[in-house]
Design a protein around this nucleic acid. Structure first.
Ligand SMILES: [Mn+2]
Ligand SMILES: [Mn+2]
Length: 550
DNA sequence: ACCTAACACACAGCT
DNA sequence: GTCCAGACTG
DNA sequence: AGCTGTGTGTTACAGTCTGGA
């Protein structure tokens, strides 16, 4: 309505569905079930009204609809369209339905009218709550044993094979999160995507089993939310029904692990430590391994907890805060030796500022503005320039990296083989960091050119040409190299925790400043960056603000 | 990748 | 009336 | 008071319309 500047054609949703359908058929025809393949073949042969009505049904909630609630201006002959869909067995008109499917289609008020029309007394029903009315209706209409058209008083349509569309969406997007709104938001100009080259030959799904496993996982994830509110026995039973983790599907495996983790964590809260521990043991998620150590300690099994800490540290000794820190405490309690770690805690400056009610970062930024140019950038400036610098590599074509036009990143960004598949390009760009200070006009142009393109690193609105220029002028190449290296070390975890402010003092140079309000403290990822800054001579400080009330 | 992830902040229990 | 959640739209 | 663990709220298109409390 309000996007008058960019109107969509009246059949926009039909075009979008055709695009999805064509790609699914082209890529996955051999993995489709008979009824799925039938839809691909049948759909294009329907008349336009029928196709539009079908897509309207698909994009609405549920599978049963009152015909009176399916009036669309762009569908000229809805009745005829429905009849064609029914002939082709894509929908059923007035099918036999369970009452609970029918009840939600009418409002409280409408049901009273319906009952009246059916010659039923309605005395006293007007004051009932919806749930109570539903009970009465179930009883009364059950006794009546009338047909669906009699009860409804108008045609009712049921979408047949409602499971097909979720399969097609999964095949098209490769995940269960994205849907047809991606098309709309893009076409309205609300989302912008990089125009990378699509790889139409590499498939995201190798087998029907894999597709079904993803769909099943999605269903289980929906059940999970409900189960988490239940008691320990229910949670445990549900955990046992989860499928085994597939060895050849890291994405599905991770999703299942996260579900196991959520269940175990809830068991822990309910006091079932041993059961939680059993679940944690089978998980390789870092969070789960941390919980394992904590639960062992809570159970009084400090020796085992300590042994686990040692194990973790032996795997990756680098920056693992938790096992070292927790292990240190355990070791002290058990009078064991524990390796010393020089990681000094960053010194924290106290700063008293007048209380204004604004966010502490803004107040602090204003304070530092007296010393130079100060910006509240958090994870936007360094990440942003990282994204600009590596933009061509991130969106470079690679086997299986891009399968549809609505991606924020290549599918394999967080997988091990990402770097190997782009080795040459990355090598080149790593080397180019040495000359990053000469790239100002390039990156300003890239910023203008690609502004708004969704991606994991560049938050376009937070940057501008001046900020890009100043950052490249003030921060030396060696520092960019160090920072970018840490991003690459762990793209998933190291892209957060960057300081709130950057100050470009009048006298030159720069400084990264993390602001902490009263009662706040450094988070682990923030602490890790501070230590890294210290180790690489990158100017930084932490200021703890206290409020001065006047 | 709103079925998440990043951040600040609130509060409890500990020393 | 009034507020809120959620379905639906482009 | 300071430390630690843990939980919470906010923020992601913008807008209309409906039903129910
Ligand atoms: Mn911050
Ligand atoms: Mn901060």
């Amino acid at each position: 309505m309000s996007q008058a500047s960019t109107p969509l054609p009246p059949d926009y949703y039909l075009r979008n569905f055709h695009a999805l359908l064509e790609q699914v058929q082209r890529q996955y025809e051999d993995l489709l079930l008979p009824e799925e393949r039938r839809l691909c073949e049948l759909f294009p042969s329907l008349c336009k009204d029928a196709r539009m009505l079908y897509v309207r049904l698909l994009t609405r909630k549920g599978d049963v609809f009152r015909s009176s609630r399916l009036r669309y201006a762009e569908i000229r002959q809805g009745k005829k369209a429905a009849q064609e869909l029914a002939e082709k067995e894509l929908i059923a008109i007035d099918p036999a339905l369970q009452l609970e499917k029918l009840l939600p289609l009418w409002s409280r008020q409408e049901w009273l009218t319906r009952l009246g029309a059916l010659g039923q007394p309605t005395r006293g029903l007007a004051s009932l709550k919806r749930a109570e009315l539903d009970l009465v209706l179930t009883e009364r209409l059950g006794e009546l044993a009338a047909s669906v058209p009699t009860i409804a008083g108008e045609p009712v349509y049921q979408l047949l094979n409602p499971d097909i569309f979720p399969v097609f969406k999964l095949l098209f997007f490769g995940n269960p999160y994205q849907d047809m709104t991606e098309f709309v938001l893009r076409d309205l100009g609300l989302y912008r995507f990089e125009s990378y080259r699509l790889d139409r030959d590499t498939r995201l799904f190798r087998s029907r089993e894999q597709i079904d496993a993803h769909l099943a996982c999605h269903t289980l994830a929906e059940q999970l939310e409900v189960v988490l509110l239940e008691d320990a026995a229910t949670i445990l039973t549900f955990a046992r029904t989860l499928p085994a983790q597939p060895a050849d599907d890291p994405i599905l495996s991770r999703r299942l692990q996260r579900m196991h983790y959520a269940l175990a964590r809830q068991l822990e809260r309910l006091g079932h430590l041993a059961e939680a521990l059993n679940l944690y043991r089978d998980l390789s998620l870092p969070d789960a391994q941390e919980r394992q150590v904590r639960v062992l300690a809570k159970l009084g099994r400090e020796q085992e907890a300590l042994a686990l800490c040692r194990e973790r540290l032996a795997e990756r000794e680098d920056t693992q805060h938790f096992p070292w820190r927790f292990g240190q405490r355990l070791a002290r309690g058990l009078a064991c030796d524990w390796p010393h770690r020089s990681a000094g805690k960053p010194k924290v400056e106290q700063l008293e500022l007048a209380y204004t009610g604004e966010a502490v970062e803004h107040v602090a930024a204003e304070h530092f503005a007296a010393l130079g140019d100060c910006h509240y950038v958090e994870n936007t400036l360094l990440n942003g320039l990282f994204g600009l610098h590596y933009w061509p590599a991130i969106f470079a074509p690679a086997p299986g990296a891009f399968s549809h036009p609505f991606q924020h990143a290549p599918h394999d960004l967080h997988q091990d083989e990402f770097t190997a598949l782009r080795a040459d390009l990355l090598e080149e760009q790593h080397a180019a960091v040495a000359r990053i200070n000469e790239k100002t006009t390039d990156y300003q142009a890239l910023w203008r050119d690609r502004f708004g393109c969704l991606n994991p690193f560049v938050y376009w609105q937070a940057l501008n040409e001046t900020l890009i220029a100043t950052a490249l002028e003030r921060i030396p190449a060696a520092h960019w190299q160090a920072i970018f290296r840490r991003f690459w070390q762990d793209l998933k975890n190291n892209c957060s925790g960057l300081p709130d402010l950057i100050l470009f003092p009048h006298e030159g140079g720069y400084e990264l400043i993390e602001v902490k309000g009263p009662g706040d403290r450094l988070q682990l990822n923030q602490k890790a960056w501070m230590e890294y800054f210290a180790a690489h001579g990158i100017p930084h400080r932490v200021v703890q603000v206290s409020w001065r009330h006047d």
